[in-house]
Design a protein around this nucleic acid. Sequence first.
DNA 1: TCCAGGTGTGTACAAGTGTTCACTGATGTG
DNA 2: CACATCAGTGAACACTTGTACACACCTGGA
Lengths: 207, 207
Amino acid sequence: MTQKQRRKPGETRDKLMRAALDLVGKGRHFASLGIREVTRQAGVVPTSFYRHFRNMDDLGLQLVDELGLVLRRMMRETRANASQAEKLMSESVATFVSHVQANRSFFLFMAQGMAGESRAVQDAIRSEMRFFSSELANDLRRLRLVDHLNDSDLNMVCDLVVRAVAFSLPDLLWVSPDDGYQTDLIREQTTRYLQLIFVGAANWKSQ
Amino acid sequence: MTQKQRRKPGETRDKLMRAALDLVGKGRHFASLGIREVTRQAGVVPTSFYRHFRNMDDLGLQLVDELGLVLRRMMRETRANASQAEKLMSESVATFVSHVQANRSFFLFMAQGMAGESRAVQDAIRSEMRFFSSELANDLRRLRLVDHLNDSDLNMVCDLVVRAVAFSLPDLLWVSPDDGYQTDLIREQTTRYLQLIFVGAANWKSQ
DNA sequence: TCCAGGTGTGTACAAGTGTTCACTGATGTG
DNA sequence: CACATCAGTGAACACTTGTACACACCTGGA
């Protein structure tokens, strides 16, 4: 009787994805979420779920797509700040950290999905990371910072960089969101990792 | 009527932990396992579960303890093979990879637990990794390979090494267990990561 | 205008869930 | 030997779960 019914197309769909994300943000693991639980959190009747998703895995996949958008936006912003090579690393890390803070649930979901039970979600996340790595390689080539490295070695360096940053994710998500002190420590430490890697890259002899 | 009842103390307890691990090995996520499901897999009546664990989180914690044993054994074996500094890295990585292959479900569980929903499990795994890192620092000091680094920088290097290896876990678990080719690639790539890091460490200027 | 299709709702049901209870038998200690 | 304790069992409970069905409404194109 008091139903409004489709004010905006995809409104309930968004509510459901947001609800799942909120539950993840509250500490639940995505793999343990149920349809009823998500619809309850979204304030929607369970049957509505099937209008938009076939099952929870499907919802997870669509979440990864949105996650992709967040990551692209982050990458673009990182590139914009990559003016001088001097503070390039520390500012890139800072951008990453602030995006994690701003989209905590999303990155929580991503960290879970890396070892999740849906192969498709794993694939999607891995390919997202590969994309990151290859774009980073392009940028470094363009900035002529790595002329002494061949392609294979450059890719290795970039892979390691992406991994080092990605592995700070559990650290970031582990500390309280508003613990600025710990967050600073992680930011600083991750930056040092990158510096170490680049010292290695600078002294690396290809072939 | 056909019950045997306590042949060995802790027999059912082991069966339950093994059952949970088997389900994880079969692709399920630990967070999505239920008590009935685990007891069914173990061939035990649901009530028996409560004789040994308070809930699934409790079982998870006890699994982490066993995981600790596996990791310690691995570390000991790695140390034993650390004779000549030449092949130190490639052989350490090889030891790691072979242990992952031999205890796939355990490491699957570990990878899941890092971003799992039980804070206690996360803590346990993180402290396990810290322990690894500090032991590695000790070894490097003893071998006098890093005399030019101060303690803080040495710890950073060791942290990064452990992270680089740990981050190859998703890769290893992602490929089919008997895909020797892919496995070799991962082993090789991880070794190169470590070499890069050590080139960085060798040229790192403390202070 | 009408009507097809997308979206939201309420009801229903079978199957599965966590947990409690009272029981039974084996085991080690006094 | 007797007996308290431990570790196993089956039946039962109240509840949740995924999914199906029939219906109601709104909206856009013919």
